[in-house]
Design a protein around this nucleic acid. Sequence first.
DNA 1: GCCAACGTTGGC
DNA 2: GCCAACGTTGGC
Length: 138
Amino acid sequence: MAYWLIKSEPDAFSWDEQVANDVEPWTGVRNHQAKKNLAGMKVGDRAFFYHSNVQRAIVGVVEIVREAYPDPTAESGNWVCVDVKTVGPMPSPVTLADIKQDEALTDLALVRQSRLSVCPVSVEHWQYLCRMGGWSGD
DNA sequence: GCCAACGTTGGC
DNA sequence: GCCAACGTTGGC
């Protein structure tokens, strides 16, 4: 199974809304590299839910429950989305500042390509970030 | 196909 | 609010 990180501006769609909705279609991605990442997601993969812009922190964990299908919010039909399900909140959110300070995380896609809204996370980084956030996991 | 202009994202 | 990074558009 693979690991990912998906970004959302809390003003547009926040973690609280994700928790309230439980399962949410992850739509609106309009970047080819991000699309490629979405298309590579499998059911059962997990992703960090990251708040960009105002909070800048990993605030929770979600699971992919439906693989890439045409994004209904795209008129062209050329974009895709996936469905993600709430797994749980990070006990202590991992901030971007924390991540940037940590030498083990300098090659994280989140840091290297700040504008990419859907990025892959290696197993090593996933476990490392989980430890930082106090995620006991399952 | 190159490149300048412009728009958007996201950190600070 | 500013700016850097990056994507897109359009003229040539």
